[in-house]
Write a protein that binds this DNA or RNA. Structure first.
Length: 322
DNA sequence: CGTTTTTGACCGGCGC
DNA sequence: GCGCCGGTCAAAAACG
């Protein structure tokens, strides 16, 4: 990868034609004052060159590390998915009479899902818990996990607290409802994906009850089309690029978050030009899912790492200062 | 005039 | 069975 295209390391010092050493020495004899300047300049150039080399080297090292981590993460995810499907197959084979909910079946009533699926269901009432009961509850939990795996939650901090419930995530949404819920004085807005009428994805956006500058958007389902390009987003909403940068922390996300600008923004070692097409190439659903998972896990681990955030802050401030 | 947003009505599940 | 509540529908209004 050509990192010089990413960061302008050009020192813009060698602007004129190169002199021969003889010409230079003649010139030095003619203007002794200029000789000192030239020496000073030469010194500066060599120092800058060294800095540049060090930076490029560091960039290469970080990139290699990034690549290695991505590979490890991919391997772990693949193993986890394989294991989970094996467990599912095993349990299904043991209990073939139980009907499984279809892929399009919605989670049975959100109220139950949201109240937490943390094994409390496994411990519910039935006396004399046998091994079959345990398996049953495990199947239940696995099914719930499979369903809720398509639900993701994203937290977005907004700069202006009084703006509407708009979260720019790279997709086109049509609002179809708004409700005031019991546990939050702020209204909850309901959106459907309007980019493709057949797209099953829905989104709920509500301000956090604790911190009203934080928008909580909950996604249900997966898009069956690629994300809008930056140009398309700006065409539909000129403010979108700004809000992309305001994408805040992701304190909790129970599974796969949506792809989009956040994904593109994560791998900072990649060239921005990769996203400049009209529409991003639509990856296969499996790889898309894996990609989302990877991005989320990477983002989570990176944002939790104080060393990383400190280094990032230092790099950004250093870049601004220079 | 077509599209999007708003908003009250309606529906269905859940808990008592 | 009834009321509560979250989610959806659809007509009206607003907008470009």
């Amino acid at each position: 990868m050509d990192y010089s295209s990413l960061i302008n390391t050009s020192l813009e010092l060698k602007t004129g034609p190169v002199r021969t050493s003889h010409e230079a020495s003649t010139a030095l004899k003619q203007w002794p004052l200029a000789a000192n300047d030239f020496m000073e300049l030469e010194k500066k150039v060599s120092v800058k060159q060294q800095e540049k080399n060090a930076l490029v080297e560091q960039m290469n090292r970080v990139s290699a590390e990034n690549k290695k981590l991505t590979e490890v993460l991919t391997a772990v995810c693949e193993k986890y998915n394989a294991l989970r499907s094996q467990v599912m197959d095993y349990l299904m084979a043991k209990n073939p009479e139980r009907p499984s909910p279809g892929p399009n079946s919605r989670p049975s009533r959100k109220r139950k899902c949201e109240s937490g699926n943390d094994g409390a269901a496994a411990a519910n009432g039935s006396s004399g818990s046998s091994s079959t009961d345990e398996e049953e509850s495990l199947i239940k939990r696995l099914r719930e996990e499979k369903i809720t795996a398509k639900i993701s939650r994203v937290f977005v901090r907004t700069e202006r607290p009084n703006t509407g419930l708009i979260v720019k995530d790279g997709y086109l949404w049509r609002k179809y409802g708004q409700k005031i819920t019991r546990d939050n004085p702020c209204p909850r807005a309901y959106f459907k994906c309007s980019f493709d009428p057949s797209c099953p994805v829905k989104k709920k956006v509500q301000r956090s009850a604790k911190d009203q500058s934080v928008l909580v958007s909950t996604y249900e389902g997966e898009h069956n089309h690629p994300v809008l390009s930056q140009a398309d987003q700006e065409a539909t909403d000129p403010t979108c690029s700004r809000s992309v940068t305001s994408l805040g922390s992701v304190p909790h996300s129970n599974s796969l978050s949506s792809t989009g600008p956040a994904v593109a923004a994560l791998d900072m070692t990649k060239s921005k030009r990769a996203n400049e097409g009209k529409v991003l190439p639509g990856p296969k659903p499996e790889s898309l899912e894996l990609q989302r998972l990877l991005v989320e896990q990477m983002a989570s681990s990176l944002t939790k790492d104080p060393a990383f955030t400190a280094a990032l802050a230092a790099a950004i401030s250093g870049r601004i200062v220079h």
